[in-house]
């Protein structure tokens, strides 16, 4: 089995376990102030790190290219409260323009 299939099936199983456990365990097991507080930061750190890597990394090398321009425009769009499709499209258009014309 390829690594991608292992990731697809493995992550699907643990995702379901996460969901099912919540429905099945006594509330006091997970409902602890510390767990809740750490959990609030988990998506922020993981997703921020993902954005950074996807924007600036090509394998192990860091570089600034058309992706950074696209993401910068996405951040500006978010700052101006643009909707999700506008954010994604404006990033794609900017990146494509920089890639194709420079």
């Amino acid at each position: 089995m390829s690594a991608i299939w292992i990731a697809v099936i493995g992550a699907s199983l643990t995702a379901f376990l996460n969901k099912y456990i919540g429905h099945s365990v006594p509330e006091q097991w997970l409902n602890k102030p510390r767990v809740i507080k750490i959990n609030a930061f988990v998506p922020i750190v993981l997703l921020s790190a993902l954005v950074a890597v996807q924007t600036f990394a090509t394998e192990k090398e860091l570089l600034i290219d058309q992706r950074a321009a696209g993401v910068a425009v996405a951040l500006i769009a978010l700052k101006f409260k643009a909707s999700f499709p506008v954010v994604v499209l404006s990033a794609a258009l900017t990146s494509a323009a920089v890639y194709n014309w420079f």
Binding site: L47, V51, R67, G70, L75, L78, V87, S95
Partner: peptide, 21 residues
Amino acid sequence: SVWGLDAAVPAAFCGLIWPRL
């Protein structure tokens, strides 16, 4: 890259993080 998809993905992530900040 020709269609800007390489930036669309991190931009989609930005859209997911933004409301959490």
